[in-house]
Design a protein around this nucleic acid. Sequence first.
DNA 1: TTGTAAGCGTTATCAA
DNA 2: TTGATAACGCTTACAA
Lengths: 344, 344
Amino acid sequence: MASKKVTIHDIARILKIDSSTVSRALNDSPRVKKKTKDKIIAAANELGYQRNQLASSLRKSKTNTIGVIVPRISRYFFSSAIAGIEETAYKLGYNVIICQSLEKVERERELVDTLLAYRVDGLLISVSMETRNYDHLESLKIRKTPHVFFDRHCDIPNNSNVLIDDFQAGYDATQHLISNGYKSIAHFCGPLEMELYKNRFNGYVAALKDNEIPFNKELVIESRLMTEDGVNCIEEILLLPYKVDAVFSANDIAAIGAIKYLKRKGIKIPEDIAFVGFSNEPMSSIIEPALTTINQSGSEIGKKATQLLISIINNDNEEINNETIIVKSQLIERQSSKHVKQKG
Amino acid sequence: MASKKVTIHDIARILKIDSSTVSRALNDSPRVKKKTKDKIIAAANELGYQRNQLASSLRKSKTNTIGVIVPRISRYFFSSAIAGIEETAYKLGYNVIICQSLEKVERERELVDTLLAYRVDGLLISVSMETRNYDHLESLKIRKTPHVFFDRHCDIPNNSNVLIDDFQAGYDATQHLISNGYKSIAHFCGPLEMELYKNRFNGYVAALKDNEIPFNKELVIESRLMTEDGVNCIEEILLLPYKVDAVFSANDIAAIGAIKYLKRKGIKIPEDIAFVGFSNEPMSSIIEPALTTINQSGSEIGKKATQLLISIINNDNEEINNETIIVKSQLIERQSSKHVKQKG
DNA sequence: TTGTAAGCGTTATCAA
DNA sequence: TTGATAACGCTTACAA
């Protein structure tokens, strides 16, 4: 069992001074004589004093802690976003509590509740794929809890977001395939209720249109974009009575699932079918052929989101909570979408 | 700015009852009349009441929260361990705060301090590679803060640990290469001050000995096992004036770095040089040839560690904090270490 | 420069 | 079954 913790009162008693002086000294207040301060700090170290953050935060109504909710910490994009968040928060004097929703709304809702009960000063959220009902997120707005959505946002009006231009990225990915000579291009998309997947999809559609390639609904397959989904998607594509020569997948994971499946079947990439993914997961550069993808700088997005959140926290002016920052993304060309001569 | 939060006193005032009754009702105490309880819960929902966990924990001297420190959340092993930890903790009524040390002692030390300041009920720690000085970890013991080391432990006596049998795994990996006909086997090892890498190394040495293969110090290269380290290690090996036909790497990341480098050079795997990695990172099954590796069940380790920690927390008997649990690991055979005829 | 005292929002003890 | 009250450990007016 944990031993009784040392408090400022213990220190005060020993030094025969008041606990308020101890508190001031430990907070490096200028209102304590240097000599007293030194004595107090020495005693604190001696006794192994450790501030009780609960009591301090309760009294100050300020935790200097921000809560982060992501779908899955193991995804490269999110872990690099967390790196950016932690670094920035730390510099600005904040601690970070990281949570994962595992793409479940119910869990997301509970995490929001728990983090609010812990009285975090603000929240950074990338919503789960399941999230359709935004009650728990709208309540943040109603309660005026500072929050910023990053990457996966939701269409509640008047929120702060840090996003990439998914439309442009979807357009770029598709245009790249078209420029490299591919004509019949499928799209593996995520749940279209999510803004981000809708935007990637719209970019795909726009690029086809600008190149006068007719849009074919059969070529768009919606899923949750896990590895198995990639397999199912490509199987569906292979069943079509005509040849599809390229796929733009809205994430790398599904693309890699499909590529592995095709390789087992002896289907050549990109000769038989080309691929472009999304997110630049580390695996995308390992697989053969290496996967062309869209790089989103997670750490940049994390950094921007944290700066924005903390400015909202510090700014009592609540009307600032209404800003959307767009972070640039880039296409990374690799082998999986190489130009192939004499296509269809 | 966040709006003023509703407290039990607000509810009490409105219902013209005492706040202690409200507290009891919200904690579902049997000592409140059903009718009163319903009225209170209705009012709480109505007003959007949310318990202040800081105040509650302060009063109870119990946070029902455990802190987790891992080197890097993006590593597959750790993110799967975290999944196991969260699931188990949740079932047992605990919340989890996840932190990453990024392999830096200084950060690890700060995280321990921060988590203790937050008054977590216990800690799960996988120590950073840099950690040589154990002061901050020993102080946990002195302060009697419940804690369990998992995967990466340290040699402070009388601690609780959940580990895999690294010696056995290192032995198995090496024996596998020997059984498949390889004779000159290098070892990429991590910092030998770390128990875990020392044990993998000792397993390697023991397997050589049991097969009457002389140990050659030149074949053991120590590093931090990042991707670049893998490249440096294999370059060193290639400079040797004799042929090395296999490598046992103490993690997958370094092995993959080396394999990518060799492939660029046109060196064939496993024909020219075979590989066995460690950890079963997702990338290890994607690379070609697929990497033979040791699978450690992260979620199993996380689960066991959490159960042990919580039993220590609940058990005032402090002498229980002295248990080491070993979780089994398995060799996963893939292409990178296939038997090659007519070696040496 | 230091001390006094109240209060942050709970919960636990005791009394009614 | 409910109420009154003190206490958890800290910070901060205000006083001295």
